[in-house]
Amino acid sequence: MNESGGSRLALLRFLERVQERDLARTRKWIVDEERREAERRVGEERRPPTPEWLIERGLNRNNIVAVHTGECWDPGKRARPATRTQAVEALRHQVPACTKCRPDTALGIEV
């Protein structure tokens, strides 16, 4: 530190104030991150379980388009949870099995 810009003590006090503000800001960031983490954990706990099977319906809701496993990455927007029995019945009534997740193979059904 140079002697021409003010006393060393004044400069050190200034540095202290800057560091206190930085520390306060960092502590606020920590509190915010802890809150977000707690909210994420609560969200995961409240998330409903992934269904085992999905049935994808067409635009008119009466037309079944495909059967998927619950873990399929491409079920479509109109896919709804289904029971194993519903998935088996749909496949037996010639509803196509998804070509990506192959629910017919998972169910042990040959179509």
Score class of each variant (00 low, 15 high):
Glu34Asp: 12
Glu71Cys: 04
Thr26Lys: 09
Gly70Phe: 07
Trp53Phe: 12
Thr26Arg: 12
Arg41Pro: 01
Arg25His: 14
Ala66Met: 08
Arg47Asn: 00
Asn62Leu: 09
Ile109Cys: 00
Glu89Thr: 08
Ala87Asn: 00
Arg8Glu: 10
Arg25Lys: 10
Asp32His: 09
Cys98Leu: 07
Val42Lys: 15
Thr99Ser: 13
Pro51Thr: 03
Glu3Asp: 14
Thr99Val: 10
Asp104Tyr: 03
Glu110Phe: 06
Pro75Lys: 04
Leu15Tyr: 14
Asn63Thr: 12
Ala66Thr: 00
Trp53Val: 03
Val42Tyr: 13
Ser4Gln: 12
Asn60Ser: 12
Pro49His: 09
Pro81Phe: 11
Thr26Ile: 06
Ala38Glu: 14
Leu54Thr: 00
Ile55Tyr: 06
His68Tyr: 10
Lys100Gln: 07
Arg80Gly: 02
Gln19Ser: 11
Ala90Gln: 02
Ala90Glu: 03
Phe14Val: 01
Trp53Ser: 00
Glu33Lys: 13
Pro75Gln: 05
Asn60Trp: 15
Asn2Glu: 12
Trp53Asp: 02
Pro103Glu: 02
Cys101His: 04
Thr105Tyr: 05
Met1Tyr: 09
Gln86Glu: 15
Val31Gln: 11
Ala90Pro: 00
Gln19Asp: 08
Arg17Met: 11
His93Trp: 00
Arg40Met: 05
Trp29Cys: 01
Ala82Arg: 03
Arg92Val: 00
Gln94Met: 07
Arg92Thr: 01
Ser7Ile: 01
Pro96Trp: 05
Val95Pro: 01
Arg27Lys: 13
Cys101Met: 08
Asn60Ile: 03
Ala97Pro: 03
Gly5Thr: 12
Glu71Trp: 15
Leu9Tyr: 08
Arg36Ile: 06
Ile30Phe: 13
His68Val: 01
Ile64Leu: 12
Glu20Trp: 10
Asn2Tyr: 06
Leu59Met: 05
Glu16Ala: 12
Gln19Arg: 15
Lys100Cys: 05
Val18Ile: 13
Leu59Cys: 01
Ile30Tyr: 12
Arg13Tyr: 09
Pro75Trp: 11
Asn60Glu: 14
Ser4Met: 11
Arg57Met: 03
Arg61Lys: 11
Val65Ala: 06
Pro103Asn: 03
Pro49Glu: 13
Ile55Met: 04
Trp29Val: 01
Val31Arg: 13
Arg25Asp: 15
Pro51Cys: 04
Gln19Tyr: 14
Cys98Val: 02
Glu34Tyr: 10
Glu37Leu: 15
Asn2Asp: 15
His93Thr: 05
Pro51Val: 00
Arg25Met: 09
Gly70Arg: 04
Thr105Val: 13
Leu11Ala: 14
His93Gln: 12
Leu54Asn: 01
Asn62Thr: 11
Glu52Asp: 15
Ala79Glu: 01
Ile64Phe: 09
